[in-house]
Simulated scan of single mutants.
Amino acid sequence: MNRFSDRSGPIRLGMVGGGTGAFIGGVHRIAARLDGHYQLVAGALSATPEKAAASGAELGLDPARVYSDFTEMAEREAQLADGIEAVSIVTPNHVHFAAAREFLKRGIHVICDKPLTAGMDDARKLLAAAESSEALFILTHNYTGYPMVRQARAMIAAGDLGSIRVVQVEYPQDWLAETPASDNKQAAWRTDPAQSGIGGSVGDIGTHAYNLLRFVTGLETESLAADLHSFVPGRTLDDNAHVLLRFQGGARGMLWCSQVAVGQENGVRLRVYGDKGGLEWFQENPNRLWVSELGGPLRRITRNGPGASGDANRVSRIPAGHPEGFLEAFGTIYTEAAQAIRAARDGQAAPDAVIFPTVHDGMEGMAFIDACVRSSKRDAAWVNLS
């Protein structure tokens, strides 16, 4: 009997990273539990054995399935009859490639936090590893899980806005507006090139904004001009970025991301304008989509409300008026992945309606970061995406 023989019950999940005190690990665990598709059974939650053991105990894991090394975890879990079927990788960026490779080559599905890797070389290697594996690779660009984002995507695909002319997307925060406290581990690794990679704010949140733009509009980027800047003294990586975008077919775009915009929390906002109409979505009020038609009044579409599409309603859980937010959107990515994993159990492809970010979306994000860095070094010159 192998670990895929039992096709019933929850998907057996492992986790790399996400030990005690790790914000994103907790988010992934909530998302995995939300719709009841997964059971966390193993983890390499920290590279420090003592912390790994303590984190495992806190989560109620069997001590025999708590590891301090992800390679050991991959090797042993692949041999167990009830070993993990999928693994969540929630480490700093520089670990993504090495960890994902160990599970992919053993046929274990990977659900990985963004961005794909810390640099382009590792991204290309991870792409090759994912394409040569029978396992699925899911990247958690969770903003694609919001019902009203799915609504916007469906409306644009249906031609409701006509030919797209202008796209504006932004993601401002203020949590890095000053030098963080020395014990702020999140800030420490996200501002460290050795762990975060080639991009600062543009890699951390700019990739979310770019992925959202691409997911909703389907536009293909032709070239960009980026001005990356570090405002906080002594900071190596950018904490603010302004990016101009040119798309195939003639549309134009602008992306702004900042982690020094005082007063901003997680202000993801998308505006799309075509020759027939426009739309706007704001993540801090995510259950509403504002739509305008040329010569007509502004109208509001609400999640699971009148006018909401089947694409949006399929990923809505509760009636209109009860808010769904960040955790539910994250949960949608896990649920979409679960449907694909369950199909893979039976040797089938995922249903056509199932959508989740893949390794190819990750490569697009890495190409975006790389192009932004190259452009900024040339005084915001226009560059093509590699």
Rank of each mutant, 00 (worst) to 15 (best):
F137G: 01
G296Y: 01
E220I: 12
D311C: 04
V232R: 02
K125L: 14
T217N: 08
G159Q: 11
R33I: 01
T91P: 14
G200E: 05
A22L: 03
A312D: 00
V202T: 14
L327T: 12
Q348V: 05
M1K: 05
N142I: 12
F23Y: 15
R314D: 12
E77H: 01
E336I: 09
P351L: 11
R317I: 05
V262M: 12
P147H: 09
A86Y: 10
L139H: 06
P172R: 13
V16L: 00
G18L: 10
I138M: 15
A44Y: 05
G56P: 08
G325D: 07
R124S: 12
M148Q: 15
R303V: 08
G250A: 12
T48L: 02
H229G: 00
D238G: 04
G119I: 00
V149G: 08
W281L: 10
Y146G: 06
M363C: 13
N2W: 00
V167T: 13
M363S: 11
P10N: 03
A54Y: 07
Y273F: 13
V315R: 10
Q348C: 10
T221D: 01
C257T: 15
L255G: 08
T358R: 13
S258M: 00
V149N: 06
V110S: 04
D227V: 04
V216F: 10
S230L: 09
N211D: 15
I111D: 01
V66A: 03
N313C: 14
G206T: 03
A350N: 01
G218Q: 04
Y171V: 01
A100R: 08
I301E: 07
G119R: 13
E170K: 13
V260C: 10
N142F: 11
D346K: 10
C372Y: 04
E170T: 13
S46Y: 08
A98S: 15
Y334I: 09
Y334H: 15
W281F: 10
L213N: 05
G310F: 03
V166A: 02
P233V: 03
G331T: 11
L279E: 09
F215T: 09
I341P: 00
L245Y: 02
P233S: 10
Q186H: 02
R246T: 07
R269K: 14
A261C: 10
G119H: 14
E72R: 12
G43E: 06
G310D: 15
E222I: 03
V110E: 01
A54M: 07
Y210C: 03
D361K: 06
A98D: 14
E222Y: 03
P306E: 14
G234K: 08
A343V: 04
V291F: 03
L245I: 12
R314V: 05
T179I: 12
M363A: 11
A226F: 03
A187H: 07
V383Q: 06
Q39D: 13
H141K: 12
E293T: 14
G296H: 07
V354C: 06
F103E: 05
D192Q: 09
A188V: 00
M1C: 09
Y171C: 11
L213C: 14
L136A: 11
L34H: 06
T191W: 02
E293G: 15
V373D: 09
P147A: 07
G162M: 11
R12M: 00
